[in-house]
Simulated scan of single mutants.
Amino acid sequence: MPKVNEEHFAARRRQILDAAAACFAREGFHRTSMQDIVQESGISAGLIYRYFTGKDDMIAAIVAEWHERRTLMLGDDPAAGYLAVLRGVGDPAAAAELRLAVQVWAETVRSPRIRDLARDNVDRPRALAAAALDGVVPDPDALARVLIAIYQGLVVQTLWDDTVDHAAFARAVAALLAPLGLDPAQPGRDGDEQEQRGER
């Protein structure tokens, strides 16, 4: 496929996925119709179906993108990357994605395909965390699951409670990790401390 066609394909696909994600986050997965996505995207239904077979296909593509982004955020230092992910939950720009994430989790009960994708989204970072904890704790996989549960719980708390202090939450988790010999400190933490002291 010529490069210009690849770029056009990618741009159209991005346009559809962004529209679908906005609709799903706003109205919920089951209340969103394909016509809603057509209107949100400004692309005809016939053209959308050339890119995706339906809503499940769009959700699968969105979840796959989450995998890639989370893996990049964890980077070479899983402890620092994990704390960055926790702080990122409080970013107002992430609010729609959080709402969509919880809906995807609920959808895993109905759809084996979505469940498998969501499991992969958990299993890969869990494996990274377990590898980092190997030799540090007796059961690294169990602790990795606890850390993932902390993240999932924070997502739900953030949607329920506008008063969650995500910087403080991340510092508390860092304090839990510190006795294990991990070094979760990263540059953004100094800024958080300055903000608490009123320096900015």
Rank of each mutant, 00 (worst) to 15 (best):
M1V: 14
M1G: 15
K3G: 02
N5S: 12
N5L: 14
E6S: 12
E6T: 08
E6F: 08
F9P: 00
A10N: 07
R12F: 13
R13L: 03
R13E: 14
Q15W: 01
I16M: 11
L17A: 08
D18N: 12
D18W: 04
D18Q: 15
A19W: 03
A20G: 04
A25K: 05
R26Y: 02
R26K: 15
F29V: 15
R31E: 12
R31A: 15
S33V: 05
S33W: 05
M34T: 10
M34P: 00
D36T: 10
I37N: 06
V38G: 01
V38H: 09
Q39A: 12
Q39E: 13
G42I: 07
G42K: 04
S44Y: 05
A45S: 13
R50Y: 13
Y51G: 02
F52K: 08
T53M: 01
G54T: 09
D56K: 04
D56S: 12
D56T: 15
D56R: 12
D57H: 12
M58P: 04
A60D: 07
I62F: 04
A64M: 05
A64D: 14
E65I: 02
W66A: 12
H67I: 02
R69Y: 03
T71A: 10
T71K: 04
G75E: 14
A80H: 01
G81D: 05
Y82E: 01
Y82I: 04
L83V: 11
R87K: 11
G88L: 04
V89Q: 06
G90V: 04
D91A: 14
P92F: 11
L98I: 06
V104N: 07
W105Y: 13
A106D: 14
V109G: 01
V109C: 02
R110C: 03
S111L: 08
P112V: 09
P112C: 09
R115L: 11
D116N: 11
D116C: 00
A118V: 09
R119G: 12
V122C: 10
D123S: 11
R124H: 15
R124C: 02
R126W: 01
L128I: 14
L128T: 14
A129G: 10
A130M: 11
A131H: 14
A132Q: 13
L133H: 07
G135Y: 09
V136G: 00
D139K: 06
P140A: 03
P140G: 07
D141M: 09
D141R: 11
D141E: 15
A142K: 10
L143F: 13
A144K: 09
A144Q: 06
A149H: 04
A149K: 09
I150E: 08
Y151W: 15
Y151S: 05
L154V: 12
V155E: 02
Q157N: 10
T158Q: 13
D162I: 00
A170V: 01
A170T: 02
R171Y: 03
R171C: 05
V173D: 07
L177C: 05
L180K: 08
L180E: 01
L182H: 08
D183R: 14
P184Y: 05
A185N: 05
A185Q: 10
Q186N: 15
G188S: 12
D190Y: 03
G191Q: 07
G191S: 08
D192R: 01
Q196V: 12
G198M: 07
G198N: 00
R200K: 06
